[in-house]
């Protein structure tokens, strides 16, 4: 629960930071759903919905 900079943060708050950071990672540069669309169409060759 304690963040970076808090005196008693475990491992300098890196676990807490990673948890929050991973939310942003799932959105920036293409959300998980958009990337799954791309994988389905480009890698697996599944048809487009439209």
């Amino acid at each position: 629960m304690l963040t970076r900079g808090a005196e008693h943060a475990v491992a300098g708050g890196s676990w807490q930071y990673g948890f929050l950071r991973s939310r942003a990672n799932s959105i920036e540069g293409g959300t998980t759903d958009i990337l799954k669309n791309i994988i389905a169409e480009r890698v697996l060759g599944l048809p487009r919905l439209r």
């Binding site: 990337l35 994988i39 389905a40 890698v43 599944l46 048809p47």
Partner: peptide, 24 residues
């Protein structure tokens, strides 16, 4: 890719295609 439902291959629907992507 083969199985058709509601006039389209089921792989066109995201419920199916995203499941396949996750499997990959």
């Amino acid at each position: 890719k083969d199985r058709q439902q509601f006039g389209r291959p089921i792989g066109a629907y995201q419920a199916v295609s995203h499941r396949c992507a996750q499997m990959l």
